[in-house]
């Protein structure tokens, strides 16, 4: 079949993974978001002074803690999945092993992230009434 396009027109922005700079860009975006959200988490946890059961639940029952925590978890698990993917693509050379390693990373990231987000939601929706006397 005759190619009517200049080869560069088909390749530009695509790269060997066929999706251009999207993955690279998402990794940078999530890194900046993670920087801000982890600065918030570190300051918040240090301000709590103690991390016992009641303190942590009362803290996460407040929307001003639960919402940034949910954002932090989303950003964390997207960023760690993208990061581990690059490491696997660079060092796991066998096609079959690479496929299963990427599958495992995706399953664990989605599973772990969902469990963490569900936990925060559960505390946010159930601990508030008991801890703060149904404000």
């Amino acid at each position: 079949m005759t190619e009517m396009e200049n080869p560069i027109a088909r390749v530009r922005g695509l790269g060997s993974a066929r999706e251009g700079g999207h993955h690279w860009w998402v990794e940078r975006m999530t890194s900046v978001a993670a920087f801000l959200l982890y600065a918030w988490l570190l300051v918040s946890l240090l301000r709590l002074r103690t991390l016992d059961y009641g303190t942590v639940r009362e803290w996460l029952a407040d929307p001003w803690a639960a919402v940034p925590m949910l954002l932090l978890l989303f950003v964390t698990f997207v960023h760690l999945r993208d990061g581990l993917r690059v490491v696997i693509e660079d060092y796991v050379h066998d096609e079959g092993n690479r496929f299963f390693a990427l599958l495992l990373v995706n399953f664990l990231a989605v599973g772990g992230g969902t469990l963490a987000i569900f936990s925060v939601l559960r505390i946010a929706f159930t601990a508030g009434g008991a801890a703060a006397g149904l404000r």
Partner: peptide, 13 residues
């Protein structure tokens, strides 16, 4: 990530 998930899941449990 495992420690983070464990901490939050334990607090929710």
């Amino acid at each position: 990530a495992a420690a983070l998930v464990w901490w939050l899941a334990a607090a929710a449990s």
